[in-house]
Design a protein around this nucleic acid. Structure first.
Length: 961
RNA sequence: GCGGGAAUUGCCAAGCUUGGUCAAAGGCGCUGGACUUAGAAUCCAGUCUUGUAGGAGUUCGAGGGUUCAAAUCCCUCUUCCCGCACCA
């Protein structure tokens, strides 16, 4: 048995030593540039990465076999905050993080002293990056990736920063980058933005931000600022709610006097407003006062409600009882609560007169919507918060998507809700009657440092605006020509393009590249990984010639990537020799565009869309991406793989527990690209068996063939000849599947089907030397065909067969001296059907006492009739006309009934060649006897149960005696 | 909510693009057999119902429709999964 781990190491070393996967431009050869996403260097790679990478590698190897010059590079992504988060957690002696990192390091180092040393070095983020990029490189090599290792870099490298600066300079020039204000979750203690990773149980919470509109209701010299998510309901306001027991303040903001809750002062301050408090007072002081609705000047009474949360937004809300279940129920509660009315000295009559004012019409609900939903959810008082929230949500959904303002809304009547929102906000904004307040959807978010998360408003946030200029149309042009496999994801891209708007493209912290036009900002990690494939084409030249980063000027990149500018000038300014500049430019122009990008569906909505947008923004049309293939995620034993579940399987474990070729084979074979791949231990064991059987089969066959490459005998016998032809057909189909990105089908054909049929040949062939002749013929091609998937095993076999050189560099030549005989296949199928029928009969007979099988072929006249049926597509009259021409046919009284029954069962089948069954049966007789372990008589006169008459063409009659 | 994907015989999962050869690949499980002292492993056979002759019947989330013919095409419904922006 082969020691697969040993074999793998051996060939990986040989490949690396011989540098056979280094891609160098060669103008006489067609090229393929194949990429996979660079991994994020903050932890080990897992089998999900493995799926993408093996996918890419199979195609890199396939195209080499097809004679292409292939470039397949890799690099490491380190941009952003995760690496910083690790190092600061290590610095703070965070036990959980330390344990996690220990676990990661242990995958490559078992010496506990070394582990601790590496761990403590992680206090410096760059050591993390260095460590993981190195260990990932090891993993990639053990995966058997046919990559060009000279072109690795990290996104933190100075030379890479220069490249990204050039990219953003280009985007800025085109006007695709702009400034605006943007609310973010922010930790005041850490003094930085807080993402999912920074927030306690951030992965389980909704971290969106609500945008409240604060509406200024005039109250004497003050504005009472009530907050709402639904400004379109302003026409239906009946009163204002405040919480009588909470603290409110009179403040000065932006030259105006506002009344808001005390809590909200801090919220406003965090969002860039300067607030000075004039006076503090308790909520009940506001009760019974009246304010004016800015939209229709109507007077509104201020009333008490316990559900008002003064921590949210301004701590004051307006009441729209017709459209808000909370408001309606609070109003009902108050009307019944004479005690409260009296306590606060409110005018009972006025309160009893308050009625819901319906302002939005719904097609399906003619009643007051809030009433409808309160009943639907069986709500009895305002403290049933959970039910009220559900009711509110459904009420809101219905009105927002299906509602129209009615005649109570002045000029806005008949406006659909989404439109009403924007025009009402615009109108009030113009009159300076509103302010915007942001508040998290989930209150009380806590930073991992323990401080409460607030919302901060970045006034000068940089955005990429995907709607700028003609950009989106250009991107659509690219998309239309892009090959996407599987096809079903194209629609996804189209919709995302539609929806893409503005996206913040820089952050205040993290590793990466500074914005060239605003150095306080770091380019965000998804924006600095969109056109980096271009950098692969020149990075080797930069590093090999030790070109320092400062020489990598904008003009240099313009020349290399866009063929712009004067080389003499650039050479002089940068001090880089003209030769090198031209080398880089030629190399880019040779390799670009990217021919394949093999990645996962999770990237469609961000990375892959940006990949297309940034390419069309910067590069000329013939450098736009050509093809994207997508995989669904890998799951483990039916469960999603995730850190929290503790079921992440790293690639390092794979190499310990399995062989790499087994991994490559399993991951490629067990699911189509567009299907989730379930990693099941049991399945892998089964597949391992298959692979071992294959190796055994090949090896024992080889051992029986002393001179493998010595001339091949002509194969004469029917059975091996047919098998040979069928294998050839399978190879052709396998390659076709591969070309169409159906990896599973490719392996189904090339591995399983071919293997099964060869195993069968070995078992039932009646002349062993002919079997070996078939092997001689088939094996070299077969091994080549499988080598992209299981390259190590195939190299080993290739050399055992006596070939020199790497199979990884062998060209596929299946079309050479391969003869697929269509009839062979039909014959084989015919015999297989016959065997199936015989077995079926044996099964029904339930008797073991069988001596002989008699087979009777159909008489000639039936063959003639069937041929006529096919020729005339079952047209009875036409066929009859032809039958009349033949005296023997028309005279035979069975002819017409037979014709009728055959037409009935014919079912528009296509024309097939009716083979000469007598000859085939004669040739296949030994094979049949071998398989059925019974003797066979063909067309014998012995027919005691007169079965003979049942024979039809391609379906001989059978009698088992 | 928006957008996308999916539902197949005990389970996982092919087939659907291009309707017919589909009772529907493959694997797991289960049943029987071979080997073995025995088990694990391995190999062989079977695995919707039914039938002493290759047949018949009922199936592919539910309900309609198109067609000579539907797992496959069209419509409606139900259920499940995934993505949704500063996060890599």
């Amino acid at each position: 048995m082969y020691d697969l781990k040993k074999i793998e190491k051996k060939w990986q070393k040989k490949w690396e030593k011989a540098k056979i996967f280094e891609g160098n431009p060669n103008s006489s050869k067609k090229k393929k540039f194949i990429t996979v996403p660079y991994p994020y260097a903050s932890g080990p790679m897992h089998i999900g990465h493995g799926r993408s990478y093996v996918n890419g590698d199979i195609f890199a190897r396939y195209y080499r076999a097809k004679g292409y010059n292939v470039l397949f590079p890799i690099a490491f992504h380190i941009t952003g905050t995760p690496v910083l988060a690790i190092s600061s957690a290590i610095k703070n002696r965070n036990k959980k993080m330390k344990d996690l990192m220990r676990e990661y390091i242990y995958l490559h180092t078992s010496d506990s002293k070394k582990i601790e040393k590496i761990l403590s070095s992680f206090q410096d983020p760059w050591n993390i990056v260095n460590y993981f990029s190195k260990s990932m490189l090891v993993d990639l090599k053990t995966l058997g990736m046919s990559m060009d290792w000279r072109r690795t870099f990290t996104t933190g490298d100075k030379i890479y920063n220069k490249f990204i600066e050039w990219q953003f300079d280009k985007l800025y020039d085109k006007g695709y980058i702009e400034k605006g204000s943007y609310p973010i979750l922010y930790c005041p203690k850490c003094e930085s933005a807080a993402g999912e990773d920074d927030i306690q149980s951030g992965d389980e919470k909704n971290l969106s931000i609500n945008k409240y509109i604060g509406i200024k209701f005039q109250l004497n010299d003050y504005y009472l600022v009530a907050s709402t998510l639904r400004p379109e309901t302003l026409f239906g306001v009946t009163n204002i709610w405040i919480n009588p027991e909470e603290i409110y303040v009179e403040v000065q903001v932006e030259g105006e006097n506002w009344i808001i809750s005390k809590h909200s002062v801090e919220i406003l301050e965090n969002q860039g407003k300067s607030v000075s408090i004039n006076r503090e007072f308790i909520g009940e002081d506001l009760l019974a006062k009246k304010v004016k609705n800015p939209i229709n000047r109507r007077d509104l009474l201020i009333l008490p409600a316990s559900f008002v949360d003064t921590e949210i937004a301004t701590g004051i809300v307006y009441s729209v009882p017709a459209h808000a279940p909370f408001d309606l129920i609070a109003l009902r509660d108050l009307k019944k609560d004479i005690k409260t009315i009296n306590r606060y000295n409110l005018d009972e009559e006025e309160i009893q007169n308050l009625q819901p004012l319906k302002i939005i019409n719904l097609k399906d609900i003619s009643r007051i919507p809030a009433e409808f939903y309160i009943e639907k959810y069986h709500i009895s008082n305002q403290n049933e918060t959970e039910k009220l929230e559900q009711a509110t949500a459904e009420n809101y959904r219905q009105e927002f998507y299906h509602g129209t303002l009615n005649s109570n809304c002045d000029t806005y009547s008949n406006t659909v809700v989404p439109k009403a929102v924007s025009i009402i906000v615009d109108k009030l904004d113009n009159e300076n009657k509103i302010t915007k307040i942001y508040y998290p959807v989930t209150p009380n978010l806590m930073c991992r440092c323990g401080a409460k998360i607030v919302i901060s408003l970045l006034e000068d946030q940089w955005f990429i605006n995907f709607n700028a200029g003609n950009w989106k149309n250009q991107a659509r042009n690219c998309l239309n020509k892009l090959i996407i496999a599987p096809k079903k994801y194209r629609l996804n891209f189209e919709n995302i393009f539609e929806w893409l708007n503005k996206r913040p493209c820089a952050r205040k912290r993290g590793l990466g590249t500074s914005l060239p036009f605003d150095n306080d900002w770091i380019i965000e990690s998804l924006s600095d990984s969109t056109i980096y494939m271009a950098f692969y084409t020149i990075v080797n030249t930069i590093t090999e010639n030790k070109i320092p980063p400062e020489k990598l000027t904008l003009k240099l990149f313009d020349f290399i990537f866009l063929n712009k500018g004067e080389i003499d000038e650039i050479a002089e300014i940068t001090g880089i020799t003209k030769d090198l500049i031209i080398k880089m430019k030629n190399e880019f122009f040779y390799w670009y565009p990217v021919d394949h990008r093999h990645t996962a569906i999770m990237h469609i909505s961000n990375h892959l869309s940006f990949y297309i947008f940034h390419h069309v923004a910067i590069f000329s049309k013939h450098h736009w991406p050509k093809c994207i293939t997508l995989i669904e995620p890998v799951i483990v034993e039916g469960n999603k793989m995730g850190k929290s579940k503790g079921n992440v399987i790293s690639l390092a474990e794979i190499k310990q527990n399995y062989s790499i070729d087994l991994f490559r084979f399993f991951i490629s074979q067990s699911a189509d690209l567009g299907i989730k791949l379930d990693w099941r231990e049991k399945q892998i064991k089964t597949v391992k068996k298959h692979l071992n059987n294959f190796i055994n089969f090949v090896d024992t066959s080889l051992n029986k063939i002393p001179n493998f490459q010595k001339n091949i005998q002509k194969i004469r016998a029917w059975y091996p000849k047919v098998i040979n032809s069928i294998c050839a057909k399978k190879f052709k189909e396998a390659e076709k599947a591969l070309r169409n990105f159906d990896l599973r089908e490719y392996l189904q054909q090339s591995f399983y089907e071919t293997f099964n049929i060869l195993k069968e040949l070995k078992k039932y062939s009646y002349n062993k030397s002919e079997f070996l002749e078939v092997i001689k013929m088939i094996l070299p091609k077969w091994i080549k065909l499988l080598s992209p998937t299981i390259p190590h095993i195939c190299e080993e076999i290739w050399h055992k067969m006596g070939y020199k050189g790497f199979i990884s560099l062998e060209k596929w030549d299946f079309h050479k001296n391969i003869n697929i005989n269509q009839n062979n296949e039909i014959e084989y199928e015919y015999i297989q059907n016959l065997i199936g029928d015989i077995k079926n009969i044996q099964k029904v007979l339930k008797t073991e006492e069988v001596e002989k099988i008699n087979i009777y072929t159909a008489p000639n006249w039936k063959i003639k009739v069937n041929n006529l049926i096919m020729k005339h597509q079952g047209d009875f009259h036409k066929i009859l006309d032809n039958i009349k021409k033949s005296e023997t046919l028309i005279k035979k009284k069975e002819t017409i009934p037979y014709l009728k029954s055959q037409i009935r069962s014919w079912n528009s089948k296509p024309i097939i060649n009716l083979i000469d069954e007598k000859i085939v049966l004669k040739e296949a007789k030994k094979y049949l006897e071998n398989r059925l372990k019974l003797s066979i008589a063909i067309d014998s006169d012995y027919d005691p149960k007169s079965r003979k008459k049942n024979a039809t063409p391609m379906k001989p009659a059978i009698y088992i005696s």
